[in-house]
């Protein structure tokens, strides 16, 4: 177990280094942030001054190593554009992001897992056909369309919920549903397929032939095994949501990490961009690690070594 943890930690460091270097290089390849920051009629001298103030006149590698050095001490630097510590900017957005990600995620599991099992057990019935078709549509319909339709109905027509913004629970409902619907569509289809595969497996037939109770067969032999691919997929979905759901955040004016990241790209705010990417990558590594631990709980055959 300790060896597993150490190996995982080592891998995580490598992943984060590669990601940060990639972000740094690709960011700088896009060009000069000063051109975007300075007003349109700033003089050349004024732009040079800003460049040296931001440290952009130093060689690239020097800039990278000073970033890594500071990051190791827990200092992610100052945002070029907002002149505020990057870590503060990310932490400020964290509650909103986690709230939306967690609610959307739980909602999608609450829909997907029972529904997936139900239609797997009732395959080729009207229910199966209906649910699969709806899931298909849900998966293909773009997020922004679903979001706009929800706003048009619940906020503008019925005036039951606010159009957009961040505040109490009423503000959370529509964006969480928007996220949950798409994610649930994907997970439902996976749950159904996975369940069907397990139900047709030899060991389930054997278990049934042994005369075990249906409940035991379903929960002990089938459900846990069927959950393995779903847990993997759900882990990825959650990691993605914590990295920011840009489109949903944009439509609902939700102040999350996704919009922070995309704005950093548009404004070439390199320190902020590197900070947000590192944050998202860390979330990804962490959640994958948790998923691995979950495998052990679900399937005793899996050993961590």
């Amino acid at each position: 177990m300790l060896r597993f943890l150490l190996r995982r930690l080592f891998m995580a460091v490598i992943v984060l280094l590669v990601v940060s270097f990639g972000t740094f290089i690709i960011g700088h390849l896009t060009g000069d942030p000063v051109e975007l920051m300075a007003p349109e009629n700033a003089t050349r001298e004024a732009k040079d001054e800003l460049r040296s103030y931001l440290g952009l006149d130093r060689p690239l590698l020097v800039q990278y190593f000073s970033f890594i050095g500071n990051a190791l001490r827990g200092d992610l630097g100052f945002s070029f554009v907002q002149q505020t510590a990057v870590s503060d900017l990310i932490l400020e957005r964290l509650p909103a992001t986690l709230q939306l990600a967690a609610t959307g995620f739980v909602l999608s599991l609450l829909i997907a897992v029972p529904l997936g099992i139900f239609i797997a057990l009732n395959r080729n019935t009207v229910w199966d056909f209906l649910a699969t078709s709806v899931a298909m549509i849900g998966q293909s319909a773009p997020n922004f369309w679903i979001g706009l339709m929800l706003i048009a109905l619940f906020a503008v027509q019925l005036r039951l919920l606010p159009v957009s913004g961040y505040g109490g629970i009423s503000y959370l409902i529509l964006p969480a549903i928007t996220i949950a619907l798409q994610s649930a569509a994907r997970l439902t289809r996976l749950m159904r397929a996975s369940m069907l595969e397990v139900l047709n497996a030899d060991y389930v037939r054997t278990a049934r032939a042994k005369g075990l109770r249906q409940k035991t067969v379903l929960w002990v032999h089938s459900f846990r095994n069927a959950m393995i691919p779903v847990v993997t997929m759900a882990g990825l979905e959650l990691a993605e949501l914590i990295g920011g759901a840009f489109i949903t955040e944009t439509i609902f004016a939700w102040p999350g990490v996704g919009r922070l990241a995309v704005n950093a790209v548009y404004q070439r705010d390199f320190p902020l961009l590197q900070g947000v990417v590192l944050f998202a990558a860390t979330a990804f590594v962490l959640i994958n690690f948790l998923v691995d631990l979950l495998y052990v709980v679900i399937d005793p055959r899996v050993k961590l070594s």
Binding site: V156, R159, V163, S164, G165, T250, I251, A253, R259
Partner: peptide, 18 residues
């Protein structure tokens, strides 16, 4: 001063009176 990045959401806010 609210930030509502999507144009149609801004107009929806206006129409909803918010």
């Amino acid at each position: 001063f609210r930030v509502v990045p999507e144009t149609s959401s801004r107009l929806n806010e206006l129409r909803a009176g918010t």
